[in-house]
Simulated assay, not measured.
Amino acid sequence: MSPRRSYDQYCSAARALDVVGDRWTLLIVRELLAGPRRYTDLHADLPGVSTDVLASRLKDMERDGLATRRRLPPPGAASVYELTPRGRELLAVLQALGKWGQSELGGRRPTDAVRAHWFALPLLRALEGEGLVEVRLEEGEFHLRIGVAEASVYGDGPAPEEPDARLVLDVDTCTAIARGELSVRDAVRAGRIEVTGDGPPAKALRET
C-alpha cells in the first residue's frame, strides 16, 4: 500500500482531493455504486486501468474508509468490494461532477469505451419521484432506484423485482439526456422513450 500523498493545505477541498484525487478513484466509486463487485468485474468495466493500478487504488480506498472487501459465502466463495457509508456519500460528488461535465461530453470518439450502466447516473439526475426503474438499451440493461436511500443506486441487468417503470430507449437519446440537451419528459413526448409499468414513475412519465 502506497503512502498517501498530500497537498499539505489546510483546506477541505485539498483534504478531499488527498483521498479521491488520484486517477481512477472516482470511477471505481462509480462502479461500486452498483453494489458489491468482484475485482474481475471492476477491471472489465474500467477499460484502460492496469491491474496494478486498480489493486493499488482499491487498497487505498480500504485504508481511507471508502470501501471494504469481504468474502461471499458458498457457492459464490469470491471476494467482493463495496462502498462504506462514507464512500456512498460520494454519489453527490459524482452527480455534481457529471452535471458540470455535461458540456465536455461532446460526440463519442472512436476510442471511447461505453457501458450501458454508465448512463445510470445521468438518468438518476433526470428522473423524478421514487421507485425502481428498469432501463433497456441495445447495449444492455440496468436498473435504478430513484429517490430511495439504498446501499446501491443502480445495478447491471434487469430489475431484481417487478419495477415501477420500464424505459426502452437508444444510446443517442441517453446521450442527449446526459449532455443536458433533452429532458426525460420531452423524450417521452417525442416518442424516443417507451414507458411501461404501473408504478408512480411510469404513470408520471405517461402523463407528460
Score class of each variant (00 low, 15 high):
169 L>W: 00
154 Y>L: 11
68 T>A: 08
193 I>G: 06
111 T>R: 09
75 P>E: 02
181 E>T: 15
152 S>H: 14
62 E>Y: 02
149 A>S: 12
143 H>C: 01
60 D>S: 15
186 D>H: 06
149 A>N: 05
176 A>W: 05
177 I>S: 02
54 L>D: 10
94 L>S: 02
114 V>S: 11
56 S>L: 07
57 R>F: 05
150 E>R: 15
146 I>R: 14
66 L>A: 11
114 V>W: 09
135 V>A: 00
188 V>I: 06
114 V>G: 03
85 P>E: 04
96 A>Y: 05
60 D>T: 14
179 R>D: 00
171 V>Q: 12
127 L>F: 05
99 K>H: 06
88 R>D: 00
78 A>M: 13
180 G>D: 13
163 P>Q: 10
173 T>H: 11
59 K>H: 14
115 R>D: 09
57 R>V: 10
149 A>Y: 06
56 S>Q: 06
175 T>G: 08
121 L>W: 00
89 E>I: 09
161 E>V: 11
186 D>W: 00
103 S>R: 13
67 A>D: 09
66 L>I: 14
145 R>P: 03
92 A>D: 09
56 S>H: 03
191 G>I: 14
131 G>C: 00
52 D>I: 04
120 A>H: 03
179 R>I: 01
94 L>R: 01
145 R>Y: 13
76 G>E: 08
61 M>C: 06
69 R>E: 10
141 E>A: 14
98 G>R: 02
120 A>L: 01
132 L>Y: 01
184 V>E: 09
93 V>S: 05
186 D>L: 08
144 L>M: 06
115 R>G: 07
191 G>E: 13
97 L>F: 10
171 V>R: 13
67 A>Q: 11
106 G>Q: 02
136 R>F: 04
156 D>L: 12
112 D>G: 04
141 E>P: 01
82 E>S: 15
186 D>M: 03
161 E>K: 12
119 F>T: 09
118 W>L: 08
